[in-house]
Structure formats: structure tokens, C-alpha cells
């Protein structure tokens, strides 16, 4: 990140980018897309929010969690319990599910203080398996395998109806924009720099007086809260949830989404989510052949653009500018 003369403009650019894309997304219902597209777009945005939390964790702190979907599921279940057993509205249960996600995220982080690297990734995988069994067996709370149902009824948020297809999509867009803006702010804050220095060299950071464990737990807690928020949005989107949906499979989906888009890009998860959700619908082969083609495309994309599809834009730009002698920005 060079700070040249146009540094102020450059610093504002990402926020502008998020807002602009948010605006475009917000205007999507105006071009009267099919409900099918709106429904998929809602799913994509929810995945993008959840994956953004994971991307932040991964990109900034270098830690990777396969329990992210489990925390996402915990958020969804908390929201369901809030609605069903406590009779709370969407808005009232939001802080609760985000709060529970915060705590769950922090708990997932605790083992990272003892193990690291691949072992930690694998450990979070095991943790998420345990959580999904608990979700399946703790029937009084989660409804067991049958799952639970939550209906928004006539509730509104920001003057938009939760039960309306386009309205709910717009609500999700608003949340997505806020989450991406907050993450952008954090990445560019002193704390973000501190996190990256911790990622590059934890021992040095410790000797500089940075409390590495505490900061690590905080990042996890934050990503947990985002995952749980996305979980609640997911619940109100699909209306009915069951533990099957939150197995480590979904964590892997989130990971895939981050990697497809590019983990070092703020908007990587958004790009990845759009590809992941929309691509299979438009391959146009028989169901099983679509699955094969989708798998091949994923493999090829990840092998050819390991830094995500967004890195291709940068590469393209460089090529258009022609060969350059000095190492460019």
C-alpha cells in the first residue's frame, strides 16, 4: 500500500467501491429479475456475508476455521429459538444471535492458542462435527432432525417487509454493505495492521508487547458474530432449518467461496459466492453432468487463479498496460 499524492482518493476508493456495488445490488429488483434470480441472489449474498467473516479471519490473521458453518448454524438456531420460544422479532433477536455467535467464535478460537497451522484447521473440522451432532440430538431446542421453522409474518425492517421476496433481498443487501464496510474499516485500521503483523510474525509481535492470544480470540469472535448474523438471515430466507444444512460441508462451501473470489480481496467472498451459487444453475446439462462440470470448473478455476477470480482483473489490467519494467502498484 503506497501512500502517494493521491493517497486520500485511494484510501476512499474501497469504501466507494463497496457502496457502488451495494447500490447496484440494491437496484437489482428495479430491473424486474425473475424471482428465481432474486432468491439465488439472496442466497449468494448471505453466503458472501458469512464468507466475508471467514475471509477476514483468514486474510488478516492467517487462521482458518472449518467450524465457520457450525457457528453460522448456531446463529440460525439461536434466531429460531428467539422467535419460537421467546417470541422475539427479527430485529430483537439479531443482537442475541450475533452475541451467541461472538461467544461461539471465541470458543472455537481457544484451541488455536495451543495448536496452529493445519492441526488447527483439522481441529475446527472435528469441532464442527461435534456441534452438528449436538444440533441433531438436542431436540428440545433444535427440533432434532426435523429442524425448526420460523416465519417472519408481517414484520418489517427499515420499512421493508421480511416476507416479501424483493424486500427481503434488499434487507440482505443492506446487511451485506454494512458488513463489508465494517470489515474494510477494520482492515485499514491500526488494528488491522497489528493483526497482519501478528500473522507474519507472532513471536516478534509478542516481544513488541502485543497480546497475541487476546487479539486472536477477538478476530475469531468477530468472524463468529458475522457468521451468526448470516445464519439468522439464512433462517429467514429458507424459513426452516435442519442440522443437515450446517455440517462441515457448508464450512467447506464458505472456504471455497473465499478462495474462488480471492482471499486477499475485500470483495473476494462476494465474487466467489455469486459464482458458487449461480454457476451450477446455468451449466445446462443433465443434473448429474452439471455436477461433474461444476466440479471440473472449480478445480480449473482454483488451479489457474489460486488468488481468486478477482486477481484476474488485476492481471488483465497489467496486460492492457503493456509490459512494465518496474514493479508496479
Amino acid at each position: 500500500m503506497s501512500s502517494g499524492s493521491r493517497s486520500r482518493l485511494r484510501r476512499a476508493a474501497p469504501y466507494g467501491g463497496v457502496l457502488l456495488l451495494g447500490l447496484i445490488a440494491f437496484l437489482l429488483p428495479q430491473v424486474s429479475p425473475t424471482s428465481f434470480v432474486l432468491s439465488l441472489a439472496t442466497t449468494a449474498l448471505i453466503y458472501a456475508i458469512a464468507a466475508a467473516g471467514l475471509g477476514f479471519l483468514w486474510g488478516q490473521s492467517g487462521q482458518l476455521s472449518l467450524a465457520h458453518a457450525a457457528v453460522f448454524g448456531i446463529g440460525a438456531y439461536t434466531a429460531a429459538v428467539c422467535a419460537k420460544q421467546l417470541g422475539l422479532s427479527f430485529a430483537a433477536s439479531l443482537p442475541i444471535s450475533a452475541g451467541v455467535g461472538l461467544v461461539a467464535g471465541a470458543l472455537v478460537a481457544l484451541p488455536s492458542l495451543r495448536t496452529s497451522g493445519h492441526y488447527f484447521v483439522i481441529l475446527t473440522f472435528a469441532v464442527s462435527e461435534v456441534i452438528s451432532v449436538v444440533e441433531m440430538r438436542w431436540e428440545s431446542l433444535t427440533g432434532g432432525v426435523n429442524g425448526v421453522t420460523t416465519l417472519p409474518g408481517a414484520q418489517t425492517l427499515f420499512g421493508l417487509r421480511l416476507a416479501g421476496r424483493a424486500d427481503y433481498y434488499s434487507i440482505v443487501v443492506i446487511f451485506a454493505v454494512v458488513v463489508f464496510l465494517v470489515l474494510c474499516l477494520l482492515m485499514r485500521s491500526r488494528w488491522g495492521i497489528l493483526l497482519r503483523s501478528m500473522r507474519e510474525n507472532p513471536d516478534l509481535s509478542t516481544s513488541l508487547g502485543i497480546n497475541v492470544p487476546i487479539n486472536r480470540v477477538i478476530v475469531f469472535a468477530l468472524s463468529g458474530a458475522i457468521a451468526a448474523l448470516a445464519g439468522q438471515l439464512y433462517l429467514y430466507h429458507v424459513k426452516s432449518i435442519a442440522p443437515e444444512a450446517f455440517m462441515s460441508n457448508l464450512s467447506i462451501v464458505f472456504l471455497l467461496v473465499v478462495l474462488l473470489g480471492g482471499k486477499s480481496y475485500l470483495l473476494g467472498p462476494a465474487a466467489g459466492a455469486i459464482i458458487y451459487v449461480f454457476l451450477p444453475e446455468y451449466i445446462g446439462l443433465s443434473p448429474v453432468r452439471s455436477q461433474i462440470a461444476f466440479g471440473v470448473i472449480l478445480v480449473v478455476m482454483i488451479l489457474t487463479a489460486p488468488d481468486g477470480v478477482l486477481s484476474l482483473i488485476g492481471r488483465l489490467r497489467e496486460r492492457l498496460r503493456g509490459p512494465r519494467t518496474e514493479a508496479g502498484a
Binding site: S35, F36, L40, N146, G147, R165, K239, E281
Partner: peptide, 27 residues
Amino acid sequence: GSVMVANATKLIEDEKVKVIFGPTLSL
């Protein structure tokens, strides 16, 4: 689940069907 929801939405709102068969799977 999420694809099932998108499909149901497509059938009801885009295709304007009045009858849907399935899913057979309880979940």
C-alpha cells in the same frame, strides 16, 4: 435446502404454477 427454496420460488413466482409435486424427501 437453499436450491429447493429457489426452485419453489421460481415455480410459483416466475412460472406461475398452481400445483407443485415434491419434494418427496421429508426434510
